[in-house]
Design a binder for these strands. Structure first.
Lengths: 208, 208, 208, 208
DNA sequence: CATGAATGAGAGTTCATTCAT
DNA sequence: TATGAATGAACTCTCATTCAT
């Protein structure tokens, strides 16, 4: 389901935003159908016919709201990028030291990946379908991580100095853990996985 | 260039291995062309026509050696998976403690990614085109990391216990660093990036 | 011309039936073109490109109405099987004893073969392209002949007993006469041929 | 197996007849393989690669002996036409009146069809692949039947007059009975079927 | 706004045939 | 004579996109 951020002009071309309630319903149906379709079959195996038929609207209606299949995909990537952020943000902003917050953030992320496998798949496939959107997502995600780490260094919670490489490393860890324990299978508890890795981040592998 | 492992039956179907020298030349040309093509344009934008014309052979010759475009892609993923491993293996097996070896391995990996951007792209796109091959690659890669870590724990070099989650976390780190500093841009030295992250792994983020 | 039975869902897949008048026109054009094409060139020499260009529609439109070239062929076999039956049925149901009716039926069949050579060729080629459709056609045709013969035996018009072998024998006679005097050349009158053979059926070859 | 008539220049182009013993073996292997292949899969589904590999010879060797796939098919049709004739001939030339001989001939033909389903299939498909060979086969077959009937009329065994239509009718009967009780299934004894139909030919359907 | 028929470029794949070895 | 790699025309089928209704 495409929710959480509402449907607005950012999901369509400027001149394609729905003007009536009926239009909004159609657009909503298309977005939901597309998210499900792309998530299940990937971009290239998904077809516009299949998306519209899943949405229960006519084929032509697709182009009332989107310029192309790729435009829609791109919009969806942006939308879902926002959703992940919205879901994780409150948890990394809560109490405890920064690493404790990161732990909670990772737990939340793993849980989110587990319950939104399609989002995961869409964002990752963007690397090949809409590289700019992919870079935007991971670029800003890394930026946020870096900001948090630097804040923690400034507050004396972490040793520092930290730089972009730390942020990308941590993001890579999180993403692969999401793949492994969120999407591929669910044999381990998300909290436990987050604990293990958080301990490594806190103290390194050598501390006794 | 598709080198390092030679051309053998593993690259084609059993009954499609070339039996003459001329055949071996053609197969090699096709593999090189395909690696370049897939690396530049990705699987779906690459076409068999374009691969064969790049290889300077007739369209039909493609099917003398491969059952389908996907078969070739899969073979390439396997091949390149082997190449990465071969390239990194000697460095993680050298002297120093395990983390020192991992640092050298990451440096080598980043350098390799930088000079073989197509390999990177091919393996990653496999997540969507040939998920089994993708899982095989990352599965065995994680297994190797885990074995190395456990060996180090057994030798008293690392604190332990370590489990699969550590391996996937470290692999994720490496992969994203490869994307960021190998493929996306080359502004930072690979050794420096490896140092920064290795320090984090060794001592964690809190050590002063 | 594909007429006589109308165009309905039996000619296409369930979900491919035209929903507009324009669609019905296109479907009809395709059916007519295909019947002509298959009749002239046979299944394998006929191409979808050629069928659509003959029908004056775009290549893609073919697949709006049929799943494949074979699907269409199969539909056509069924349709034409029905047409032959419809054409002959009233004549074998008229007055006179059963052999008299069979004579009229054969005459009608020969005339029909002569003016619908394509139908003949399509049904016969089905033996190799769509054996199930072929068996369905000749199976039910033989069944009908057998029923007619048994009815005549019951009414005392024929000596009996008659069984399936009689039906297949008579059908084979008719088919080969249709080939010889309907399709291959038209040198003899259809009525005369029917008379000759009917006499043989009635009295055998030995009666003086 | 392609036997009974030997292998000679009639099976290949004039200038393609084998000159060595080794060549004769290769040609033989190709003919056998082709007969099996065409019989199982039909002309269009059969491929030259598959025929040669079944024969255990190289692809190129095919063209040492045949000008094309169609040439071979045509040769095979001719060859098999001869085989059927050879098989049936002695039985229609034996003792008894002509209808008795025809009965034995039909029995032999049905048995032959049953044990040589591929021959049947090849000759029939010739209607679409090599119409001239098809016409030659059925034309001469009908001619022979007609000659036999006319001889019998001359000898006073049959009532006459008989003409070509009788011959085609009888041939059609035989062919369809061969399909029905030889190829499609084998539930009834060939002798019994021949008896039933022969009685009809002898006395007609009305005699009490 | 909604509909769905029409379009046609382009893709992957097959395979009879040629020909250098 | 045998081999099998190479060729490329031809084919079926897909599907994003357009547009008349």
């Amino acid at each position: 389901m495409v929710a959480g951020r509402g449907i607005d002009a950012t999901m369509t071309g400027e001149d394609k935003a729905p003007r009536t309630e009926r239009g909004r319903r159609t657009l909503r149906a298309l977005l939901d159908a597309a998210a499900a379709e792309f998530g299940e079959k990937g971009f290239h195996e998904s077809s516009v016919v299949s998306i519209t038929s899943r949405a229960g609207v006519a084929l032509g209606s697709f182009y009332t709201y989107f310029d192309s299949k790729e435009t829609l995909f791109r919009a969806l990537v942006k939308h879902m990028s926002g959703q992940v952020r919205d879901h994780v943000a409150p948890l990394v902003a809560g109490e405890g030291d920064q690493l404790e917050r990161e732990r909670r953030g990772l737990t939340a992320f793993l849980a989110f990946a587990r319950s939104h496998k399609e989002i995961y798949r869409i964002i990752d496939e963007a690397e090949f379908v809409a590289p700019d959107a992919w870079r935007a997502h991971y670029g800003t995600t890394a930026d946020r991580i870096l900001e948090r780490l630097q804040g923690a260094v400034a507050r004396g919670e972490l040793a520092g100095p930290v730089d972009e490489a730390h942020a990308w490393a941590i993001m890579g860890m999180n993403v692969f853990l999401g793949l492994r324990y969120g999407v591929l299978d669910e044999e381990r508890g998300v909290g436990e996985v987050a604990d293990v890795v958080n301990a490594m981040l806190r103290d390194g592998l050598t501390k006794r």
